[in-house]
Computed example of a mutant assay.
Amino acid sequence: MQVLEQRFGRLFQQYRDRVYRTAFYVVKDPHLAQDVTQETFLKAYRNIDSVREDGREGAWLTTIATHAAIDAVRKRNCWNGIPMENPYLTVLVGTTESDVEEEVGKRLEREHLWKEITKMKREYREVLILKLHSGLKDGEIACLLKVSVGTIKSRVHRAKRILRKASGCWHG
């Protein structure tokens, strides 16, 4: 038992920031991201004996965090796409109105795309998040999800096509 606890402690120290960033990227709320991070590590602790130490622990934790964050957003049924806390307002001081409008437009577009991503089938949603947000390569995603690289490429292509339909201005 002590070996598993030491391993978990190492994983926590090594990946807690990455898990938090993944969660925050999806939920856009620092408190909710902390909750998702905690939930991710609870799930990881319960299943730590099922993961080999082969360098993929970070991808494994990122996948857990991504799923937990999407679930949290669904439970809340809202997005904090445009935060209006004081730090955000401070950043805006001194910018021109057109800069603010452009930034708000970009944030609204990202919010719309994330809403569309959360509506997708799980297989499309997870490959997009793992590829675009986590920066994993097709081969890494295929290995993590235990499917072929061709399947990953097909899912990414289909997911992008869904997003293009949802928003004519996205061509990623």
Score class of each variant (00 low, 15 high):
residue 7 R to A: 11
residue 7 R to E: 15
residue 10 R to S: 08
residue 10 R to T: 09
residue 13 Q to H: 11
residue 13 Q to I: 08
residue 15 Y to A: 01
residue 15 Y to P: 01
residue 16 R to F: 12
residue 18 R to A: 12
residue 18 R to P: 03
residue 18 R to G: 08
residue 21 R to S: 13
residue 21 R to I: 02
residue 23 A to E: 11
residue 25 Y to M: 06
residue 26 V to L: 14
residue 26 V to I: 15
residue 27 V to L: 06
residue 27 V to A: 02
residue 28 K to H: 10
residue 29 D to Q: 09
residue 30 P to N: 10
residue 32 L to V: 15
residue 32 L to P: 00
residue 32 L to M: 12
residue 33 A to F: 04
residue 36 V to E: 09
residue 38 Q to R: 07
residue 40 T to A: 10
residue 41 F to Y: 13
residue 41 F to W: 08
residue 44 A to Q: 03
residue 44 A to F: 02
residue 45 Y to C: 05
residue 46 R to A: 15
residue 46 R to H: 14
residue 47 N to A: 00
residue 47 N to R: 03
residue 47 N to Y: 00
residue 48 I to S: 12
residue 51 V to Y: 11
residue 52 R to S: 15
residue 52 R to Y: 12
residue 54 D to G: 06
residue 55 G to V: 02
residue 57 E to Y: 01
residue 57 E to I: 01
residue 58 G to C: 09
residue 58 G to D: 14
residue 60 W to Y: 13
residue 60 W to L: 05
residue 61 L to T: 00
residue 62 T to M: 02
residue 64 I to Y: 05
residue 66 T to K: 14
residue 66 T to R: 11
residue 68 A to E: 13
residue 68 A to V: 04
residue 68 A to C: 07
residue 70 I to L: 04
residue 72 A to M: 10
residue 72 A to K: 11
residue 72 A to T: 06
residue 74 R to N: 10
residue 75 K to E: 15
residue 75 K to F: 08
residue 75 K to G: 05
residue 75 K to C: 05
residue 76 R to W: 09
residue 78 C to Y: 15
residue 79 W to N: 01
residue 80 N to Q: 11
residue 80 N to C: 11
residue 81 G to W: 14
residue 81 G to N: 12
residue 83 P to Q: 10
residue 84 M to K: 11
residue 84 M to Q: 15
residue 85 E to W: 03
residue 85 E to M: 09
residue 85 E to D: 11
residue 87 P to K: 01
residue 88 Y to N: 09
residue 89 L to R: 12
residue 89 L to S: 06
residue 89 L to E: 09
residue 90 T to I: 12
residue 90 T to E: 14
residue 92 L to Q: 07
residue 94 G to E: 13
residue 94 G to K: 10
residue 94 G to T: 09
residue 95 T to C: 07
residue 96 T to H: 13
residue 97 E to P: 06
residue 97 E to C: 04
residue 97 E to A: 11
residue 97 E to D: 07
residue 99 D to N: 11
residue 100 V to M: 12
residue 101 E to F: 06
residue 102 E to M: 03
residue 103 E to W: 08
residue 105 G to P: 00
residue 105 G to E: 12
residue 105 G to S: 10
residue 105 G to Q: 07
residue 106 K to R: 13
residue 106 K to E: 07
residue 108 L to W: 06
residue 109 E to S: 06
residue 110 R to W: 02
residue 110 R to C: 02
residue 110 R to Q: 10
residue 110 R to Y: 06
residue 110 R to G: 02
residue 112 H to A: 14
residue 112 H to Y: 15
residue 115 K to P: 02
residue 116 E to G: 11
residue 117 I to G: 12
residue 120 M to N: 07
residue 120 M to E: 14
residue 121 K to M: 11
residue 122 R to L: 07
residue 123 E to K: 12
residue 125 R to T: 02
residue 126 E to T: 13
residue 127 V to S: 03
residue 128 L to S: 04
residue 130 L to Y: 01
residue 131 K to Q: 05
residue 132 L to G: 00
residue 133 H to Y: 01
residue 134 S to I: 08
residue 135 G to L: 04
